[in-house]
Amino acid sequence: MDVNGVSYTLTLDSRTTLLDALREHLHLTGTKKGCDHGHCGACTVLVNGTRINACLSLAVMHEGDSITTIEGLGTPGDLHPMQAAFLKHDGFQCGYCTPGQICSAVALFDEIKKGVPSHVTGDLSAPMTASNLELRERMSGNICRCGAYSNIQDAIAEIAGGVV
């Protein structure tokens, strides 16, 4: 599989999740293991541009896929705009959920552009918007135990202003 633009060939136990392959085998530890059961969103990565929980996917099921982790979004010297917005708005406290929050936030704009509705969408067939209510609902799969939600929301809303 391709991870952050680098091609890897791995030989793994069939039980290895995508999350463990990234962290334990490729040593890309930016992606975090929180609950390991799809509840918390700390392991959110992009697979072919789509956000999923890496803990609920087997690595063997990603042969040929293109994976983007937080390390692939930006670097300390060249931050992704969403990373910069999280810094600007102090969208974290301990930082453990942050890679998942940022990957999730980056991906949700494509979902809005493609017309994927959410639980709070009014008219299903109208163009989707990135209102604060929509952003909050679409981020509900990423839990922040420090409760930095208001600043996370501010960071994503700033990007939303320039994207949607």
């Binding site: 799809g38 969103g41 959110t44 789509t50 956000r51 999923i52 929980n53 609920l56 999730s104 991906a107 949700l108 979902e111 994927v116 509705p117 959410s118 639980h119 969408t121 679409r138 509900s140 799969g141």
Partner: peptide, 10 residues
């Protein structure tokens, strides 16, 4: 869309 999360529904 009332169920699960964006990540899981994907």
């Amino acid at each position: 869309v009332a169920g699960a999360t964006g990540q899981l529904r994907n």
